[in-house]
């Protein structure tokens, strides 16, 4: 079986992302949106809405959700799940915050690109 080994990569500081906002991390396997909520929680998701691929990083962040800028689907940041009545899910990316630095686990990308 193919085990995935974690590969934590430092992508920047918490302060680099505005509260209730998001920034993008570009990778060869596509963009990842890194969100920061009002309460300073951080989440990372693929930057593609499950509806028609809208860039979620460009949406309005409220509570622990983001509203997609293209057709207003509301996506839960922690699970990637679209809120009812819409159905769909976007992949989440493991993210750790350590001493103000943000670390993404890009093991999946490595395996995808390999």
């Amino acid at each position: 079986m193919d085990m995935m080994v974690s590969r934590w990569i430092d992508v920047g500081a918490l302060e680099d992302i505005p509260r209730r906002g998001a920034r993008v991390v570009k990778t060869p396997a596509g963009c990842i949106a890194v969100f920061r909520t009002e309460a300073d929680e951080v989440f990372a998701l693929d930057d593609r809405c499950p509806h028609k691929g809208g860039p979620l990083s460009q949406g309005i962040v409220h509570g622990r959700s983001v509203t997609c800028p293209l057709h207003n689907w509301v996506i839960d940041l922690a699970t990637g799940q679209a809120k009812a009545p819409d159905e769909g899910r976007v992949a989440t990316v493991p993210l750790r915050s350590e001493g103000g630095r943000l670390l993404l686990d890009l093991a999946r990308m490595a395996s995808r690109a390999a």
Binding site: R7, I9, V11, G12, D16, I17, R23, V24, V25, K26, T27, P28, C31, V34, L102, L104, L106, A107, M109, A110, A113
Partner: peptide, 12 residues
């Protein structure tokens, strides 16, 4: 600006 740009080498 993107927050970061990650290349294949970074994760290899």
């Amino acid at each position: 600006k993107p927050l970061a740009q990650v290349s294949l080498e970074d994760v290899a």
